[in-house]
């Protein structure tokens, strides 16, 4: 994977030179260990600022919409699925994009590493299989990448982009995993335990809306929490208002969420709100055989009606 960057730069330079695209959306080196910053490249001579490593977890789909230019975007498996959703939802036209697909073996969760080391991380290096960090206490520690991935990456079953104009490298093998063990664990709780679980889960929320804003699906011009007429939700820190926000935001992603992990990754207080969207995802798979963002040519489950759709709720 560490060699991907050469091809990313070469392809980006080529596309810009040929005038096939006007800009490339990718990552540049961040100022923080284990953080890269989404960036926009317009000139072929700037492609060397692009980077690719295990710290490119941010979903780039957010940066493609409401633009006129023809855009090349560097897309992991999850980015590609969100691009597909955007195409289905008429947020962007397929023709406006040149997708440089990147087969992905998962992105590193910097919080997990931070929790496992003493002191502060000052430098990070990586090989194909390992992450090496140096701390303020001068220690060097090494982790197997597979052990410190974002949880959604460990459960990913579409690591290869489903839609692309060019693949940067050979496809990687897909994983076979049970994606829903955590959902099942919550389902197995009593109703009282579940109530407690969700109250505790959202207690640290500060309503910064980083989860919503990082999510490529959350593009409503005015989010329901920001509506004044009517005002659906209180604006304070009352636990019910906070939960209402998370519950409804998740529900708005029903049948659309690809579990790209952007919400959890962005959260400054480490809330795993993915347990809500994953429940919806699980129910979509089980009831409608639907997984979001696999093909721009298939209408989503919640957009179509089938006679054999389960309808236990409606009496």
């Amino acid at each position: 994977m560490l060699t991907y960057i050469d091809e990313i730069r070469a392809a980006s330079a080529r596309l810009l030179q040929e005038g096939a695209v006007e800009m490339v959306v990718g990552f540049r080196q961040g100022s923080q260990p284990m953080m890269n910053e989404p960036c926009l490249i317009r000139r072929p001579e700037d492609v060397d600022t692009l980077v690719w490593d295990s710290h490119c977890g941010i979903n780039l789909t957010n940066y493609l919409t409401n633009r006129k230019e023809k855009i090349a975007v560097i897309a992991k498996g999850c980015d590609a699925r969100n691009i597909v959703t955007h195409i289905i939802e008429n947020k962007i036209e397929r023709e406006q994009l040149y997708i440089l697909g990147v087969p992905c073996q998962g992105m590193v969760d910097k919080r997990q590493i931070a929790m496992r080391v003493a002191g502060e991380i000052t430098e990070v290096g990586e090989s194909d299989t390992e992450i090496r960090v140096q701390t303020t206490r001068g220690e060097i520690q090494t982790f197997a990448k597979a052990e410190v991935l974002q949880q959604n990456c460990t459960l990913c079953t579409h690591r290869n982009p489903v839609l692309y104009d060019a693949l940067i490298a050979e496809a990687v093998s897909e994983q076979t995993v049970d994606r829903y063990t955590d959902v099942a664990a919550i389902e197995a709780m009593t109703i009282g335990e579940r109530q407690q679980y969700f109250q505790d889960l959202f207690a640290p929320c500060i309503r910064c809306y980083a989860c919503r804003n990082a999510c490529p699906l959350c593009y409503c011009p005015t989010c329901f929490v920001d509506e004044a007429q009517p005002q659906w939700v209180g604006k304070g820190q009352d636990a019910v208002d906070v939960m209402t926000f998370h519950f409804l935001r998740a529900y708005h992603c029903a049948g659309r969420c690809t579990d790209c992990g952007a919400c959890e990754r962005a959260c400054p207080v480490g809330i795993n709100m993915r347990v809500l969207t994953k429940k919806l995802e699980k129910d979509c798979v089980n009831n409608f055989g639907w997984e979001a963002g696999l093909s721009p040519d298939v209408r989503p489950a919640l957009d179509t009606f089938n006679l054999d759709d389960p309808d236990k709720l409606i009496k």
Binding site: V183, I186, E187, I191, G192, R194, Q195, Y197, F198, M243, F247, A250, Y251, A254, G255, L276, K279, L280, D283, C284, N287, L302, P310, D311, K312, L313, K315
Partner: peptide
């Protein structure tokens, strides 16, 4: 159906939604 499942999952009894 997704809605009632999600509500139940979050701790709201199924029979409260019809």
């Amino acid at each position: 159906m997704l809605l009632s499942n999600l509500l139940e999952y979050m701790g709201i009894e199924r029979n409260r939604l019809h």
